[in-house]
Design a protein around this nucleic acid. Structure first.
Lengths: 139, 139
DNA sequence: AGACTAATTGCGACTTTTTTGCAAATACTT
DNA sequence: AAGTATTTGCAAAAAAGTCGCAATTAGTCT
C-alpha cells in the first residue's frame, strides 16, 4: 500500500518526502482521524503548515477525503488505500464502527444512475447510540 | 413551520428574537448552506457572534445539523423542519440535488439493527458529476 | 400600559485554525 | 556529484470561532 502511494506521487511528478510519508503512515494507522490529530501526532516529522499542504494535496490526489462521523468532521483514506466501508458513530462514547453492505451500495448506484449522475464517491454516517452505551445507560 | 420553530423555542424557555428568526428564515430559504453564508447574509440582523451562538443552539435543539456535501462542510435544517432527504453533489458545478429513497432508508435501519445500534440520524452524500456537467464537458 | 427579570445581543478582545511568502533544504534527474 | 524544480520550516497574516460583559430586549406579572 505504501508502494502504491509512492508510485502515485512519482507518477504525478511529485516527490516522496519525509512529511508526506509521515502523514500517510499516520493515516494508515488511524483510519478515521482529525486534522488536529494529524498535526499533533506528526509534529516531529512535519510542520503544521506542511501538514495542511500535505492534506490538501492528498485530497486533490484522491488519497484522503473528508467525512462527517457523529457530527464531527474527520478525514480518512479513500477506498484506494483502505477497504470501502461506512460508519456507525456513537454519539455517547464517540467511537465509530465500520460497516460494509452490498445492498446499500447497489441502492446508491441505482440512485445515481436514475439521476444521470456519474458517481465518484459517496459517504454515509449513521449516528446513534452503540450497543455498549445502551447497556451502560439504559433508556 | 415558522410557528413550530417559535413554539419549540418557547417550550424550551427561550426567547424568539430577531437574530434567531433571521437565521432560521435564511436556512429555510437556502436548505444546504454554509456557516460563512449565514454570517454574510444575516449580517444586517445578527452579529457574527450571535450567528455562532444561534447555530450552536439550533444544533443542540436538533433544528439544524452538519453534513458534508461534495466534500464541503455544510449545514441544513433537520427532518423536523425540512423533509428527509439526501444529496447528490456535483464536484464540478458545486450544485446539490436532493433525493429520497425508501430502499436506502430500509437498508440503514437494517444495518443499524444488525449492529445493535439505536439510530438517531444518518446522512448520505453522493459526490460525482451531474448530468448537466457531463454534457458540457464530456469524457 | 409600565415595571420587572432573565435571556440575549452586539461589541471588542481574544484564541484557534488555516493560509501564505520566502529563503533554505531536499528529492530526483542526468 | 551537480543541477534544478519541488518541498519544507518558519514567521507573519488571514480567517474562523469563542468569550466576557454592559446594554438591550422578550416575555411575564401587575
Amino acid at each position: 500500500m505504501k508502494a502504491k502511494f509512492k508510485q502515485q506521487l512519482r507518477e504525478a511528478g511529485l516527490k516522496v518526502t519525509g512529511p508526506r510519508l509521515e502523514v500517510f503512515g499516520f493515516l494508515q494507522k488511524h483510519d478515521l482521524t482529525t486534522v488536529s490529530s494529524v498535526i499533533r501526532e506528526c509534529a516531529a516529522g512535519a510542520d503544521r503548515a506542511s501538514v495542511y499542504r500535505t492534506l490538501a494535496l492528498f485530497r486533490k490526489l484522491g488519497i484522503i477525503h473528508d467525512v462527517v462521523a457523529g457530527g464531527k468532521r474527520m478525514i480518512e483514506l479513500t477506498d484506494r488505500f483502505a477497504s470501502h466501508h461506512h460508519h456507525l458513530s456513537c454519539l455517547e462514547c464517540g467511537r465509530s464502527e465500520t460497516v460494509s453492505d452490498q445492498a446499500l451500495e447497489s441502492d446508491l448506484d441505482r440512485i445515481s444512475k436514475k439521476n444521470g449522475f456519474r458517481q465518484v464517491s459517496h459517504q454515509i454516517d449513521i449516528s446513534g447510540i452503540c450497543a455498549r452505551c445502551q447497556d451502560r445507560s439504559p433508556r
